[in-house]
Nucleic acid binder design. Structure first.
Lengths: 139, 139
DNA sequence: GTCCATGCAAACGATTTGCAGAGTT
DNA sequence: AACTCTGCAAATCGTTTGCATGGAC
């Protein structure tokens, strides 16, 4: 899984640096939808010499190559999702947590949408609301 | 239509200033999904004394009162939509244009979605792709 | 050895904040 | 008159960029 990613990156002509490896490792299987800063912090714990610029650089490459989704969900920041399979997201407006919602649960139709004058490449659906924990705290 | 908005704002306890009136006027019937800066520029043409801070302040109030949707679609900015009725959006990754997509066209199901451990308040669907004009330019 | 990638620091753009004066109610 | 709202300017925050050095190939 992680190895596949590394091989693909190399095949695309990118060099495999320790930093890129560490970022891919951090993302692998990560379902927390981290921001660039979260990823920076996570990698930083093992290697305090890494820079934010490198993280952004790597994330941009991964996104461009379709190995990572950029999620514009929260107000002023991007979140990233290493799971590129079709699925939706639920965003808690209380705590900002983003959880994965898989198709069978929401019956979100992905197939054959046609919009006149527009060529659809992908689609995203986001549910806004509150998680149980935040509902609890509202009382 | 515009008057309704003004009345509602006043009922909510906000003062009706010329700036707020101008912003509501600019937004009324506007289907271009403007950014805060677009709105500022639009209002500025008639009243060059308005400040960006006032625009942000007003947009925040309108959004909080459900009179305006905040669309986190583009990478690093918010776009606003005065049409709060249920509909989707298509975002052109070429030119950044956002167009409205109404339910009948995409069969997007809005009713009764249930997610365990999460109370859904609303949902948004965005189609990413290219508009005809940008497809043209790619050749 | 070549050329891409890194870390650092400065630059940027969108948004937010603090505050004194102006305007709505 | 009371209290909110405005414009201005500075501050913040996420992200991007320029550049000299370092490292993957």
């Amino acid at each position: 899984m992680l190895e596949r990613q590394i091989i693909k990156l190399r095949e695309e002509g990118y060099r495999i640096t320790p930093q890129r490896r560490a970022i891919l490792e951090f993302l692998s299987g990560n379902t927390s939808h981290p921001s660039a800063n979260d990823i920076f912090a996570g990698v930083w714990k093992n290697d305090p010499s890494i820079s934010l610029a490198t993280v952004y650089n790597t994330l941009e490459i991964l996104a461009k190559k379709g190995m990572l989704l950029e999620l514009p969900i929260a107000k002023n920041t991007l979140n990233y999702d290493p799971d590129t399979s079709p699925h939706d997201h639920a965003y808690c407006t209380g705590c900002g947590t983003i959880i994965d919602i898989f198709p069978e649960k929401t019956a979100s139709p992905q197939a054959g949408v046609e919009i006149r004058g527009f060529q659809v490449q992908s689609s995203r659906k986001v549910f806004y609301g509150k998680c149980d924990k935040c509902l609890e705290e509202d009382r």
